[in-house]
């Protein structure tokens, strides 16, 4: 007999894995890993906002992360500091402000579960968020796929062929915002980036086309989430880190195999 909380955890985990796997490919291709990490750090401020205003923490996260992305784009255009410097300033300021606000709330908050995730405590509302947010992300990816890929290969070429690069960049950032907002409960704010990039990096070694890479990446992320949930349950380890460990092991295994295969050829 499977417990209801386990079923919820598996559904939520698979949902998040599918979207994070696919979106993760763009994070790898466009070298946005640090951006994703910063976005996730700022999500803690979103959690605080959600609690202060009495709205869902997911919505608070979406509001704060989108604001973060817009401020970043605006500062980037000013070109007075390098992007990674800007990200460092914004991300850690947002994380710290979030921590300060949370500590001022005088409410008992399980900070650990926000930072490292607690998939076994996922409730029904959060599953709806994942399904709704996930469908939104997948639909956007599906309909803009060719534009996104072409723009990732070469921005000037894409612009010359009539693609609005600025709008599409904003869309990709918005998509990442949604991914962060729906998945921080699963692996935690500090580990979201790993769920985005490790499956994609593993899939890179197996795939022969961008589409295939996204599909394999999603599949590997699902595998990692399922292994992670069950090992967390049996070994009584924290769920977020368990998922990331599973993902890392998959990456190492695939890397070894493809290394041996290449050597033999």
């Amino acid at each position: 007999m499977i417990e209801p909380f386990l079923i919820r955890a598996i559904i939520a985990g698979i949902g998040v894995a599918i979207i994070a796997g696919a979106v993760g490919c763009f994070v790898v291709w466009r070298k946005m890993a640090y951006f994703g990490d910063s976005l996730a750090h700022s999500a803690l401020l979103g959690v605080a906002l959600g609690l202060v205003m009495g709205i869902s923490t997911n919505i608070g996260t979406i509001i704060i992360c989108s604001t973060f992305a817009i401020i970043l784009i605006w500062l980037q255009q000013k070109k007075f500091l390098a992007t990674d410097t800007l990200l460092g300033i914004l991300a850690h300021s947002a994380l710290s402000v979030g921590m300060v606000v949370l500590s001022l709330l005088e409410r008992s908050i399980d900070l650990h579960s926000y930072l490292f995730g607690d998939i076994l405590a996922v409730n029904l509302l959060e599953i709806y968020f994942i399904i709704f947010g996930g469908s939104f992300v997948l639909l956007f990816l599906y309909f803009n796929w060719a534009s996104f890929v072409l723009m990732t290969i070469d921005e000037k070429l894409a612009r010359a062929e009539g693609i609005n690069v600025f709008v599409n960049q904003l869309l990709i950032m918005l998509i990442m915002t949604v991914v962060v907002a729906v998945s921080f409960k699963i692996v935690g704010l500090l580990l979201i980036t790993s769920l985005l990039i490790i499956p994609a990096a593993s899939a890179r070694q197996l795939a022969s086309s961008p589409e295939l890479m996204a599909i394999i990446s999603s599949g590997l992320a699902v595998l990692a989430v399922i292994i992670g949930i069950f090992s967390s349950l049996h070994l009584d380890t924290p769920s977020g880190p368990s998922i990331v460990v599973a993902s890392a092991l998959i990456f190492v295994t695939i890397s070894l195999f493809s290394f041996i295969l290449r050597k033999n050829n």
Binding site: C25, W29, V149, D154, L157, R204
Partner: peptide, 10 residues
Amino acid sequence: FVPENSMPIC
């Protein structure tokens, strides 16, 4: 034009 190595595309 420099293709991105992390994207597999023929």
